[in-house]
Amino acid sequence: MTERTLHPPVPRRTAFWHRFGTHRGAVAGMVIFALIILAVLVGPWVWPLDPAQIDIAAKTQGPSSAHPLGTDQLGRDLLAGLLAGGRVSLLVGLVAMGLAVGLGTLVGVTAGLLRRWDAPLMRLTDLFLSLPLLPLLMVAIMLWRDSLRAQFGPETGIFILIVGAIGLTSWMQTARIVRGEVLSLREREFVIAATALGTRPFAMIRRHILPNVLGPILVSATLGVGHAILTESALSFLGLGFPSDVPSWGRMLFDGTHYMTLTPARVVWPGLAISLTVLSVNYIGDGLRDALDPRWTRPVRR
């Protein structure tokens, strides 16, 4: 563990990719994630069946050549649903996670670094943590659904509402974690030294604070993607989600749970898709963290 190999100094960006490339898990995660994205983007052209196409005669079927993954209780094709659902789930998962982690990091860093903002921001976090989620969402639907629908059309309007609802109700954990770390960093020698040298706040955050809290942030991000994908399905049961004829992985998994003993494929595939996405995001996160850590060097196996 104490043995280390020292890299000769190389330009920063090259070093980043070099480090990232030597991380086998990260590369594998990147490849899988790229494949998933490619599948949901190109898939509907390769497999052009309409996911909403009902075929009662073929309901609740196992895999066959007409339906490689089988069908649901109305005879809708699962493969087509999985490909179309992936677009929704990935988009919601990534955007909502980005919103939550971005907001959480912003609040956490500000509160941790600036004493004056600490108390008000943390009390705001307390407030958001205490609000009961369901009534909050019901109020959100009541107040904004119709105006967003009028402004952006039914689908984009609901997308904004969903992403907003998930993002604005899940930033608090990240904020508290980041703040806790920053509080501890604030008193470290290198930060005090940097302050003494007159480093500007933004440079300070970028150069000294963020790289050192990156680990927990990336964990938040990884967990956040999974959380958002699953929360989206929960929302559709409040009438806040997409209409029932728009498939998503979370929704397919939820509906499929009831049919688990009839057609196991209905839980296996969406479950696998969600797990693979979360796992690959996790490994990418690991690779990013290792590659971005300025002091980090890959341990050599003894």
């Binding site: 909403a52 196409q53 009902i54 209780q73 109305l74 019901m138 009541m142 039914p154 559709s236 049961f237 409040l238 009438g239 209409p243 029932s244 004829d245």
Partner: peptide, 26 residues
Amino acid sequence: DTQALLKSWWAEIGIETELRQIDPSV
């Protein structure tokens, strides 16, 4: 499921349907 079925039949006769679900308590 009933909504999905009606939507597909109505589509066949040239009527477009937008579906909406609302929490029963609301």
